[in-house]
């Protein structure tokens, strides 16, 4: 564990140096990425200029939910770069051979070989918007709330990671992905609005199959003082750990199945 932490620090420092070699380039990426994130809020903002509430949720409550969904997602985006290109880069081009030669966990290497540094702005933007919402909604937060908040952000991160890690691991069996990731990625949008507006099927799916609800909606209801989903709130860490364990198991099973393309 200690060794992995040290390695993580080294990987991170190394990659940061690579990225910052072109400072202007990085700044443009950072700020344009921030503009993109802020534009993402545009729909909610325009919508609420015409309507007072969405199923009992006010503008700042929806904003809180939306911001909460992108905060752990930002953390995930920082490390997910290689997941998207895993099939192409590591399997088809057989970069995975090199990964296997090193005495460090394969998953660790694949996740931390590259970082999408500009995605840290999503975390910053998300937290900033949540802070504004807390003030506007006049929420009284105790230290324990802040601690739960941190726990929930980590859980959300683990849930996003688990879902996409499982999908990525599929490329160990089927080299030519049919592109199952984009539709699931787009399901993230469901998590940005109250789960209760959807029909039962979608609510079930977002809770127990692709548990994005646990990464945004259920935690948010608690922080906004809505008590109807209390049980789900406290279940969140369990769901996150369960799905993460499952994803790692699928990954490890996949690694055993790996055979090099031999190039």
């Amino acid at each position: 564990m200690k060794r992995h932490l040290r390695l993580f620090a080294l990987y991170f420092a190394q990659y940061t140096k690579v990225r910052l070699a072109y400072k202007g380039d990085f700044l443009i990426a950072f700020f344009s990425s921030m503009v993109a994130t802020v534009l993402g809020f545009g729909f909610v903002w325009v919508l609420f200029s015409k309507i007072p509430k969405l199923q009992g949720w006010s503008f700042y409550e929806i904003l809180f939910l939306y911001a909460f969904s992108i905060t752990p997602l930002g953390l995930f985006n920082v490390v997910s770069w290689n997941l998207y290109e895993f099939g192409e880069q590591y399997i088809i081009q057989a970069k995975f051979d090199r990964v296997l030669l090193r005495p460090v966990s394969t998953l660790f290497q694949v996740l931390f070989e590259r970082f999408r540094l500009e995605s840290f702005q999503e975390v910053v933007t998300g937290l900033g918007v949540i802070y504004i919402c807390i003030i506007k909604l006049n929420l009284k937060w105790h230290v324990s709330d802040a601690m739960w908040f941190a726990v929930m952000v980590v859980c959300g991160f683990l849930i996003y990671l688990s879902v996409f890690l499982s999908l990525t691991a599929v490329s160990f069996w089927f080299e030519d992905r049919v592109g199952i990731v984009p539709p699931v990625f787009n399901m993230l949008t469901f998590g940005r609005y109250p789960l209760t507006i959807y029909n039962d099927f979608i609510q079930f799916m977002l809770s127990w199959i692709v548990p994005f609800g646990f990464a945004s909606f259920y935690p948010t209801t608690h922080f906004l003082g809505r008590q109807s989903f209390r049980t789900y709130f406290y279940l969140t860490p369990l769901v996150a750990i369960a799905f993460f364990t499952l994803a790692v198991a699928v990954w490890n099973r996949g690694v055993l199945n790996y055979s090099s393309t031999g190039s």
Binding site: D25, I28, A29, F30, S32, S33, A36, F43, L47, K50
Partner: peptide, 26 residues
């Protein structure tokens, strides 16, 4: 050189300003 961030911003700008997500009259 690297404009992926810029392209992402353009992507969201087009979605919103083209009226795809919500009519311009809103």
């Amino acid at each position: 050189k690297s404009i992926l961030g810029l392209l992402r911003a353009k992507y969201f700008l087009l979605e919103l300003f083209s009226g795809l997500l919500i009519p311009i009259s809103f």
